[in-house]
Design a protein around this nucleic acid. Structure first.
Lengths: 402, 402
DNA sequence: GCCCAAATGAACATAAATGATCGATCGCGA
DNA sequence: TCGCGATCGATCATTTATGTTCATTTGGGC
């Protein structure tokens, strides 16, 4: 939060943020928004009225809600084709037989599943732009096959926020299960994990893992094997003849520690002399400190004779490659660059070799795991964890050192 | 977590919750809701009245119920198709509870013909008595649901043998996929792994893992988390107050290294003084050297003041407990014994606390994984690995040290 | 510099939401 | 069937959100 900043937003931007907030939270209230956006309630109300007239949300007393529901069962409803939908992904391919997800987890009273023949699954991810859309797509595809409804919420990277979302999904929307990529660090993160553990519906962690209980048993989860991904990257570079492979990760990324571990293990195993190779955690490429950091790193590479660099997050890798070219460092001639994520790595000028966590498969596997759990919620079914191997996509930014 | 949260809900949200609660429970009471939602009963009543006027529920004295009959109320919704035909096998209790996985049934060929050749899956396990029958049962149950045929072969613990079995299954029987628990050690083991890697049909390893290819990518597998199992055992013993926890594993068991790793890690983490605690690998309890080994170990425990022992494989644990009693060492009074496997641990005289890898779940998961792979055999589907957490079954052989 | 239009805020009247009170009803057990 | 306690409904008071109208500010063209 910590708002109270009046950086004169364009009205358009402001409305955008209203929608954004709405899609994150599910509901917004006028006064909160007024506070957050630094305008008076009147203005917010006008914004909401405008957006409502465009059918982008539903006005209610005190704020606005996503306009679906309408009559949760009244009629076929189904009137909004838009809403949140990730475009593209035409070739769904898989015809496949659907699941039969009829998890009615209520367990008590309700004699027969009264409403909703199909389950509803809540999903909370830290952001709705980078990385997660593909995961979401995987979930959506699997859910569509199983005829399960997905209720998506984006959170900030703040545990308190996520906790609120989850509460609302379980208590308010009444989901049958949760797919969550929570913040697990910090005090609030721990509390969040505790909340998840005692949640009344099954939970599957996505790209996160956490251990709980008296014996630190892991929760059910689906994760990419980032250790392996980094190791594969290093082995690829080593096979090309590089002897020094540096690492650069973004501060605060939940994946960074695992990537670093894999990188280190592989370097050790292959006896690459990485003691002198750069190993840095940097700010995000949008931060002001980024350009200076890049310079430092490139200097460090040149000084130490490092000929290859594994860079976590495509944008940073691309930005770094651009800077290389400005400084006359040839990629891959002088410095092989390998991006970790493969979100946009292909779009770089020399297209970047990249490690790609298969985000879609992660979503799909997470959904499958949750369905299996809904089908057998008993304690007797042991905790399953699924680990998915990333893939190495070789492009042009890696080559033998010259 | 109910109640204790009056964070000004939007009226709309509140009504939504009322509906959710109603759908979940079948009935709601005014006072309960008032309590839960943090408003007065009057407000709840008004909400219910409103929702009733929309035909979303039926008012009754004291609360509301789902409106079952088509009451032809004057509301906008008139009547709704109440045909909630719960899809497929709904509750059905247990009895071969359905896994879901992605749609399986027929393998790669036909879309979903009810008839048509159902897939055939070959399965090779090292033995048909200890440990594996339960795994096989899990596979069989899952296969029965998917209407897939299982061709089972038991091999000895010799790689050459297994290789021959596999060849015959693929070439002769013509299976569509393989579930294998191969011997991965030794020269022939490596060769076997290489054979598996280049097999013409998808392979899922069961309780084994192996890395292959230029970048040592893991093969698809389903394994128990034996590290975790051992760690849980240690934590249990530590929680009881033991400060020295010994370990005893059987020579040649493929699980032993992982168990040892988990044991060591947990001991380190909990700062148990295991440097002096016995850590032994022994021959099988049927070997002639066994009795002498037991004596040695018991002596070592007594000498070092070790009060708890984790024993891999139930038979060894049972035999050891018998010998304890002969020597007058009380279990659990003088020595807490924890068996790893829980095959027959319950049958011991003081029934043994044990770590139980859920063998049936392993079989089921392996089958599901293979089916998912058959459905999408493309390289694009990344390698999945499933890790299943063992369960701790507390019985009478563990207690605080006296 | 002037004027227009969009955007915003202020003030005031209105509507909605909520809670309290009290008499009327309902449900259930004696 | 009677009676008692729990519920309910109607009305009123209070608080909060909204709609409307009018004034002020902002940003451009001309």
């Amino acid at each position: 939060m910590t708002s109270s900043e009046p950086p004169v937003l364009l009205p358009e931007e402001r409305r955008e943020r209203v929608l954004n907030e709405l899609h994150r939270r599910g509901t917004v209230r006028v006064n909160d928004l007024a506070d957050t956006l630094g305008v008076t309630p009147i203005t917010v109300r006008r914004d909401i009225a405008l957006l409502a007239s465009q059918g982008l949300l539903r006005r209610v007393h005190g704020g606005a809600t996503l306009r679906d529901e309408a009559a949760s069962d009244g009629g076929p409803a189904a009137e909004l084709p838009d809403s949140h939908t990730v475009a593209g992904h035409a070739a769904a391919g898989h015809t496949a037989v659907g699941h039969t997800a009829t998890g009615h987890t209520d367990g008590s009273s309700g004699p027969n599943g009264p409403e909703s023949p199909h389950a509803t699954v809540g999903m909370v991810v830290p952001s709705l732009d980078y990385y997660w859309p593909d995961v979401i797509r995987g979930v959506r595809e699997a859910a569509a096959q199983a005829e399960v409804r997905i209720v998506l919420r984006g959170a900030t990277y703040e545990a308190a926020d996520e906790r609120r979302q989850l509460d609302r999904l379980v208590e308010g929307v009444g989901v049958d299960g949760l797919l969550v990529a929570p913040t697990t660090t910090g005090t609030e993160g721990e509390e969040l994990v505790r909340w998840l553990r005692s949640a009344t519906v099954p939970v599957v962690l996505v790209e996160r893992s956490a251990a709980i209980g008296p014996y630190l048993e892991p929760m059910e989860s689906v994760v990419s094997d980032h250790e392996l991904g980094a190791a594969v990257a290093v082995r690829h570079l080593a096979a090309l003849g590089h002897h020094k492979v540096g690492l650069l990760t973004t501060l605060g990324s939940p994946h960074a520690p695992r990537i670093r571990r894999g990188w280190r293990a592989a370097c050790d195993e292959l006896e690459l002399n990485h003691t002198e190779a750069p190993d840095r955690e940097t700010v995000d490429h949008r931060e002001s400190g980024w350009p200076a950091t890049v310079e430092e790193i490139l200097d460090a590479c040149l000084d130490s004779g490092t000929t290859a660099l594994l860079v976590h997050s495509d944008p940073e890798a691309i930005s770094l490659v651009e800077r290389c070219q400005e400084r006359g460092i040839k990629v891959p001639g002088d410095l092989a660059v390998l991006a970790y994520d493969d979100q946009v790595a292909a779009l770089c000028d020399p297209p970047l070799t990249a490690v790609r966590p298969h985000r879609e498969a992660i979503g799909r596997a997470a959904f499958d795991l949750l369905m299996a759990r809904l089908q057998d919620p008993s304690e007797d079914r042991p905790k399953h964890r699924v680990v998915i191997g990333p893939q190495l996509v070789v492009r042009e930014s890696t080559a033998p050192p010259t």
